[in-house]
Design a protein around this nucleic acid. Structure first.
Lengths: 140, 140
DNA sequence: CCTACATCCTCTAGCGACTAGAGGTGCAAG
DNA sequence: CTTGCACCTCTAGTCGCTAGAGGATGTAGG
């Protein structure tokens, strides 16, 4: 079997080198075997695991959620109810975040549109921040 | 003039007590005068400043951006071009974040819908994470 | 005046998920 | 054999707070 260095693992998985070491340090990835010169030597399975982690992180799952998802993946005969629950919870979070960002977007647009590019004392950006009563969307 | 304690300032501005002290420590808020017993004594202007900061934070502005906005507010004869640029940049960020979250939402929905609530080896949640080629939206 | 009790003070450490840098070793090509 | 990159460990820093220890102050009731 050919040895996969950490740099190679990083390139194949899309996870940065220091981040791979970090994942090992927090026990998300098992410590790989070492070469004679003490360098990490990864297996193809490690690349899959790293890729899984990267995808999950890109979808905004927290490390602890990923830890749970990984233990599920490691034992494929378990019920997938936990995985389902984790994904559903994440979906709810994302939907809330979208709603809040949409309100925010509207408010920023009002600020930017109202700005006559003159002096600060006529600037709507500063004005809205200073007096929240002017918010068009009193969401907070 | 009546003295405003840190607790009162926190209540009026909506910023928590330790956060007020934190803002002072990073120089976002001038150190207020102290009572005989070394307790902070705020002015009404401090409440306004804290409220400004809170609004800006709620809109997702970073501390350094707020620092700039505050120096603009302190000198109302300046051009508001900087404030305008900061708000516009923030708007662009928010719009990008919304787009990315919408793609993410679609992907999570596919995962959750596809889950037959059976065993892990048939679970679409795990499957999609393990093999990103299955993503309906190849946004990343 | 004394006693509770809330509020205040400073200081340090912790959160999540990395990222950066120092200072040193291994390894492959020319 | 030397150059130079990739690797190693370790510590500290990032952002914006938050929590807790351990002690001082301020206020209201008895």
């Amino acid at each position: 079997m050919k040895k996969i260095t950490i740099g190679e693992a990083a390139r194949r998985s899309g996870v940065k080198v220091p981040t791979v070491r970090y994942y090992e340090s927090i026990g998300l990835l098992a410590a790989p075997s070492r070469s004679e010169g003490n360098q990490r030597s990864f297996e193809p399975a490690d690349i899959n695991r790293l890729t899984f982690i990267r995808h999950a992180r890109e979808l905004g799952f927290e490390i602890e959620a990923i830890r749970t998802l990984l233990t599920l993946q490691d034992d494929p005969h378990q019920s997938c109810a936990s995985a389902d629950a984790i994904a559903k919870a994440r979906l709810v979070e994302v939907e809330q975040r979208i709603r809040s960002l949409m309100a925010l977007k509207a408010e920023l647009e009002t600020m930017v549109e109202g700005c006559g590019h003159g002096r600060v004392d006529q600037c709507r950006v500063i004005e809205v921040l200073a007096d929240h009563g002017q918010c068009t969307h009193p969401h907070h």
